[in-house]
Design a protein around this nucleic acid. Structure first.
Lengths: 133, 133
DNA sequence: ATATTTATTGCAACATTGTTGCGTTTATAA
DNA sequence: TTATAAACGCAACAATGTTGCAATAAATAT
């Protein structure tokens, strides 16, 4: 793992390193409540600010499905300060509730005459690998 | 316009009729703040409860893009108490900020081996008809 | 049409989620 | 090692959403 914090030119603090470690530990998107439980020393405000700067710097991305609580996941693609460039879909399992970022062979293209599409976000809801038995 | 309230077997009250009229007046999705301004007599709690029951009964659907404030729009397709069945995409304009439900010729299909997809929600962000000049 | 039942409304109070100013502490760069 | 800039954490606030309950209005049965 390269140093995401130094790469994005933000200070490397123990708190940020710990949050980052929690993200890398999980293979799926997680809500703030999970981070809270994993943190040794939890501070609500610092966590909000950490999430905010991670989003701005393209370290993580936010996933909100059906207005439920937001989940966050590490950006595996080359995201930066300017924009996110994801080519995966967000999958929410109806049974276990976990949200996954899933790579897809051919990411669909949508053409809307007269509109200009700059970004596409695809959310699928159903049963994940583990629950689809 | 058929009587959505009686169809879904919920009481027809002045408040609900007014909220419904506001939804039909707009051709795009709207946030609570817009409904608030349009209502003659606004009550926060009643509005929350109205939105909640409209969602449950498949009268409206919720759209949340990038974790921003939720918008709501009338369900034009045959949605019911059990599930929503939309075949349109949700488009958010980066310039005017309006969220539209846009019909699309061929709604994409996504195949994820091992996963079972029950619902697909597609969100596009860019420039709408009016702003794409 | 009216009485009875059932659902909705709106208030107060509370719960959750997110933000801001500011003094203190820590990380980075000179 | 010191100076500078950034992050932290507290208090206080702001916004958003929920619940119990009594009053009221709508739907149903008479």
């Amino acid at each position: 793992m390269t140093n995401l914090l130094k790469d994005r030119k933000i200070s490397e603090t123990p708190f940020r390193k710990e949050v980052l470690a929690i993200f890398t530990k999980y293979n799926n998107a997680i809500p703030l409540s999970v981070i809270e439980k994993e943190l040794k020393e939890y501070n609500r405000i610092t966590l909000y600010r950490t999430i905010k700067i991670f989003l701005e710097k393209g370290i993580i991305h936010e996933i909100t499905i059906n207005g439920a609580v937001s989940n966050y996941a590490i950006c595996k693609e080359e995201c930066d300060t300017v924009a996110h460039h994801h080519q995966h879909i967000h999958f929410k399992c109806n049974r276990c509730g976990i949200i996954f970022c899933v790579e897809v062979d051919k990411f669909p293209t949508i053409i809307l005459p007269k509109y200009k599409i700059e970004q596409l976000e695809i959310q699928a809801i159903g049963l994940c690998e583990n629950c689809n038995v």
